[in-house]
Nucleic acid binder design. Structure first.
Lengths: 324, 324
DNA sequence: GTGAAAGCGCTAACAC
DNA sequence: GTGTTAGCGCTTTCAC
């Protein structure tokens, strides 16, 4: 089977302790010993056994990705998939696997406690974070937890700059001559959906134009419902910015079903730049959401334990296609 | 911190071995001891340390999901995401993380060997399996490997019943009066794409209708190309069954660009029932692909080591919408 | 600077 | 049936 530290030590003619020190990268060791151990390890193709190391250090061997939501159904989402894949890729570089958990919105504490007590857990990345989750975060997880979404003093945040993206999109719409821009927001319980609302408010107010806010939940169905509500309350609306592509697609479907042309009568813009945004007809104008970068950043912070800023914002880029 | 087996044994008044036997579920133990150990474990909230267990049993601590393909680009696919997500959720139940690997089509053996030799690897789930991969499967992986796709005596198969789904779809098309049904297949190198072809052949021959087969690779681009080929070779085609929704969407785009109405002139059906299938206009008729169930089945088989049939087929259900 | 020794928490022979 | 014993591969005091 694969070589152990003992094999390396024997081949290098040193004790296991010395080999361990050299390979771990700290602790005293003579340059000569250092050299011999390195060579032996290379030659034997030695790779430290993560299990044994985890047992003795108590560091854990897997990265948990926890998604907050009302039901386990939140796990069934392409967004979650992207987070998971990126975390899995990052974990692979550190020899750790990734597992997925649902964090019940109404009772996150027991799950968090279980995760904190599980010696197998190396670290935790939470998505769709709420203030309640931040509050319930066990001390034992300090330094090895990150949030995709809002953060706290104890939990660093990694998120897209959706405020900036919203500002850019509203300006884009205004520049195209759209004056009555409605916005379909994300679910209220998700704190990170607040920034786009604030940005929209500021941009619209600054232009002296009317505020038209309708809540959604990022799903296509909620986009359809929102479009009907918008057309009913404000029939002269000439643009809709939905904060997810799925909602934007739902908005377009509902608009058409009511005889409105897109973008002729109403421009529609989404957010996320999912693959089908480019495939839909007409092609959807949207803004990128660097989910993979964000998840990789969060996972790396957790796995390396490096000092990171309280909040890291990843830029989003506007992708102008046909619908707006 | 969390209680250890020693704590449980002490509380139950037995030795650690007895406690271990009871909790592991096999090996001799008197009913009385069994009862006391169970009670003590419950009362202390004992959970076995996966790390320690993995170290001593050599069982590994992560489940590898390996995706076969010509390039690493195959990993960047919503289908892979669904497999990974389901495997990760299943892994979480077993305290096991998941990592993702690319299995090069032209040289799978070295990767397979490396995985077999890696003590961290608890088991392997392969997708897009080929005969060459099955042949190259190391003995060391026996009993802890499963295939999503074709299998062998040594590798149990978990797959969708795409043959049955094809039969049902062709019958659906025939029943709707479509007589000249073309089919866009999956890539030839993927053995599991053969069953739909056989099913199509049988259904069409039985109805005494013409055979119209065009190869694709599951992508929207290949669907577009296939539609052009179909219209060129057989202009009177009145239905197209594409074996992926992405291809079906490509087919529709190409059909329209050539002035054909869907479903007026040509009915189009897909396979997979991706979220966008319901959102596209007109809504895509397709058949479900229970990827999550399949991946969970494969992962569970690998993780539990339970005896499983050589092949498990998961049913697919026809979803009749507007395009066919 | 180096090595011997003591475990991390658990399972699996092996005696009793 | 049960307990004693010996490790799994590694890190980490602590003498030297």
């Amino acid at each position: 089977m694969s070589p152990t530290l003992d094999d390396v030590a024997r081949a290098a003619g040193v004790s296991r302790s010395t080999a361990s020190r050299v390979l771990a990268g700290y602790g005293p060791a003579s340059p000569a010993a250092r050299e011999r151990v390195r060579a032996a390890a290379d030659q034997l193709g030695y790779a430290p056994d993560t299990v044994a190391r985890a047992l003795v250090t108590g560091a854990g061997y897997r990265l948990v990705v926890a998604i907050a939501g009302a039901t386990p159904g939140v796990l069934d989402d392409p967004y979650v998939d992207r987070v998971l894949r990126s975390a899995a890729a990052t974990g692979a570089q550190h020899g750790v696997g990734v597992s997925l958990e649902w964090l019940p919105l109404d009772a996150p504490a027991p799950v968090l406690r279980r995760l904190a007590a599980d010696r197998g857990v190396r670290g935790l990345v939470v998505a769709n974070t709420t203030a309640a989750i931040l509050d319930a975060m066990p001390r034992a997880l300090a330094g090895r937890v990150a949030s995709i979404g809002v953060g706290s003093r104890a939990v660093p945040s990694f998120d897209v700059d959706n405020g900036g993206a919203t500002t850019a999109m509203i300006h884009h719409l205004h520049a195209a001559g759209r004056r009555r821009v409605a916005m379909v927001t994300g679910p209220r319980w998700m704190p990170c959906t607040q920034r786009p609302i604030d940005a929209y408010r500021a941009a619209v107010r600054e232009a002296g134009l009317p505020l038209r806010l309708v809540p959604g939940d990022f799903s296509a169905a909620s986009g359809r419902a929102a479009a009907h509500e918008i057309l009913t309350r404000w029939p002269d609306t000439d643009a809709v910015f939905a904060t997810s592509d799925a909602m934007a697609l739902g908005v377009i479907a509902a608009l058409r079903s009511r005889g409105a042309e897109v973008p002729g009568d109403v421009a529609v813009a989404g957010f996320d730049d999912i693959p089908f945004a480019a495939l839909s007809l007409p092609a959807l104008t949207t803004a990128t959401h660097p989910v993979e970068l964000i998840a990789a950043g969060a996972a790396t912070a957790v796995l390396t334990g490096a000092k990171v800023p309280l909040a890291t914002a990843y830029p989003s880029h506007l992708v102008a296609r046909e619908t707006a």
